[in-house]
Simulated scan of single mutants.
Amino acid sequence: MAAFDAAIAAGYGIECDVRASRDGVAFVFHDAILTRMAGRDEAVAALDAVALDGVPLPDGGAIPRLSALLARCGGRVPLLVEIKAEGRHVRSVCAAVARDLSRWPDAPVAVMSFNPWAMRWFVKQQVGQVRGLVVTQQGKGRIRGGIARALALWLSKPDFLACDIRDLPSRLSRRARAGRLPVLTWTVRSAADRARAAIHADQSIFERGHD
């Protein structure tokens, strides 16, 4: 939460990763397993919300609920919610995110995911919610990767793309911008990344203010 508070104070938009607890509550957490951040070999999805509330992080704080982050932002800064979900099992986390967002109907919030099925859930269930597809070409073959991306675009019908900075410029990003589909890029960490993003993307997702 300290990082989010610093971003809000500086007027920066925020990007966060979200997973669902066993009982369908949205928590701001990147990893599927608690090991790296909390030293516990348990999955986020295996614990209920009350149990997750009691898991301490290295800074002494707790794992934030998405509802708490939304309240902290108070609609003052844009928020990008990246939904973490595997395969087609997306209903729990998508419904949890949608429920929290419904309490802030006028806040500048968009959802995005690597998982096109998560974005398709919003296409079907939350008409009008701004959504994006997160993409990377790293470690993927040209033909197989191209087919997977085409299918993902068809399923998710995104309002924007969030492209890996290492891929830019790419055929996908050029075609998107030519078709007036905004392109965000992640994760910008250096002056070289900033220069690349300025030419080939419409907005960047970075880690620190000086990035």
Rank of each mutant, 00 (worst) to 15 (best):
H89R: 15
I83F: 06
K124Y: 03
Q137H: 15
G54A: 15
I63M: 04
G132I: 12
W104C: 12
W121T: 13
A110T: 09
G139I: 05
R65N: 01
G139S: 12
V109S: 09
G54Y: 00
L79A: 06
P116R: 02
L79R: 06
L70C: 07
G54M: 13
V81L: 07
A95P: 01
A62H: 15
R88D: 10
E86G: 06
K124H: 12
V97Y: 05
P58V: 12
Q129D: 02
K84R: 10
L66N: 03
P116H: 08
I63E: 05
G87D: 15
A118I: 13
P108F: 01
P58Q: 12
V130C: 12
R120K: 13
G128R: 09
G74K: 04
I83Y: 00
G74R: 04
V97L: 08
D100H: 07
L79E: 00
Q129C: 12
G75C: 03
V90H: 01
G60W: 15
V127G: 11
D106A: 15
R103Q: 02
R99E: 02
A95Y: 03
Q126M: 11
S113T: 11
D53M: 08
L69S: 03
A62N: 05
T136H: 10
G54C: 11
V134K: 01
G60D: 09
R72S: 06
D100L: 03
V109G: 09
L80A: 04
W121V: 14
L101W: 07
E82N: 00
D59K: 07
R99I: 01
W121P: 01
R131Q: 02
A85T: 12
K84I: 05
R72D: 02
R131I: 13
V123M: 09
L79W: 03
R103S: 10
V134D: 10
D53T: 09
N115H: 02
G74M: 10
G128Q: 05
V93T: 14
A118M: 06
V111N: 09
P56F: 11
Q129F: 04
T136N: 07
F122W: 00
P58S: 14
V77E: 03
G87E: 14
Q125T: 15
G61H: 13
V127T: 15
W121Y: 11
V97I: 11
K84M: 04
E82D: 08
S67Q: 04
P116Y: 02
P64C: 02
R91M: 08
A96S: 03
R88M: 10
V93Q: 10
I83P: 06
R88L: 05
K124S: 13
